[in-house]
Computed example of a mutant assay.
Amino acid sequence: MSNNTTEKKAVVFDLDGTLLYSLEDLKNATNYALKQNGMPERTLDEVRRFVGNGVKLLMERAVPDGADNPKFEKTFSDFKEYYEAHCNDNTAPYDGIMELLKELKLNGIKLAIVSNKLDPAVKELNQLYFKEYMTSAVGEMEEEGIRKKPAPDMVQKALKELQVSAEDAIYVGDSDVDIATAKNSGLECVSVTWGFRDVEFLKEHGATNLIDEPVELLNYV
């Protein structure tokens, strides 16, 4: 089943744009916060380009003048509060994801999520959708000294919880941040083409393994 010399024991997944289509809810939370603070709203396409580096950077990109805006902290706080309550209004797994996870589990592959999304939202969405498949779900927790992606810290935490070494795992994501994260963590990277970045962009940022359908991931384990 593998085109690698070694069989993999684990897969670490990004969440937004990889396992879950969540753009609509991120856009709604962004626009709610902007509107509350008298700022211009953003389009779905703008929000698509802003995501990937965590919600603080998403809001820095969405708010006029970013973090220098005197109302930034209030706007960011409004976003977090709204998103925590509405992170699952329009969010759903991509077609074929649940079948893929089932197949990986049947093959004894250990699974984890590593996301720059806020940790409570990651844990909540994992509970809702993936709890029977995931051993570990790690969200943004920089306050605890764990740097967010593309630093390797979150992946290392997940691998420790999976009890698997970097060479025995692959990393799956949809963005340039994910490609850099895999590289920094010493994991082989598989980039998905159904997420928030297009194929050309991924290739420009060093993507070498591209898949168009979730089932294709089985060729890499």
Rank of each mutant, 00 (worst) to 15 (best):
V12N: 04
Q127V: 06
N4M: 11
N3T: 01
S175R: 11
F130G: 09
D178W: 05
V55T: 08
M39L: 05
P120D: 09
E142F: 11
Y220I: 05
F50H: 13
L57H: 15
N88F: 11
V63H: 09
T181Q: 06
Q127M: 09
K131A: 07
T30Q: 07
L57G: 10
E200Q: 15
D178H: 09
A158K: 07
D95W: 05
L58C: 03
K203L: 07
V221M: 03
T135C: 00
D45S: 11
G206A: 07
E167H: 15
A137S: 10
G186Y: 12
N69W: 05
K110A: 09
M1T: 03
G139M: 00
I109M: 12
L34R: 02
Q156H: 05
T30W: 04
D176L: 10
V177W: 10
F13W: 01
G54K: 04
V155W: 09
A169K: 02
V12I: 13
D198N: 14
N53T: 03
L106V: 07
V177E: 13
D89Y: 07
M39N: 01
L100P: 03
L15W: 07
Y32P: 13
T135I: 06
F79A: 06
D178G: 09
E24N: 14
K35H: 15
D119H: 11
N107V: 09
V215T: 06
V12S: 02
A158Y: 10
L20V: 04
A158H: 08
L19S: 02
F13V: 00
P120Y: 07
H205K: 08
A151C: 14
Y171Q: 00
A137H: 05
I97L: 04
E81Q: 13
M141A: 13
K74P: 11
E161I: 07
M98V: 01
K148G: 15
A166L: 02
R197G: 11
L210E: 00
E140H: 10
N3V: 06
Y82H: 12
V138Q: 03
L217Q: 05
T135L: 03
T91S: 08
F130H: 06
E24F: 10
Y133F: 13
E60H: 09
E167K: 15
L218Y: 04
G52C: 02
R197Q: 12
I113F: 00
V199H: 15
A180V: 10
K203Y: 06
G206P: 08
N37D: 01
K110L: 09
A151T: 14
V192E: 07
D178E: 05
D25N: 03
S2L: 03
K105E: 08
R61Q: 02
Q36I: 10
T75Y: 01
V221T: 10
D178C: 11
C189P: 03
P152C: 08
L118F: 15
F76H: 04
E140R: 12
V199S: 15
L210K: 01
E99W: 04
K80S: 01
Y133H: 08
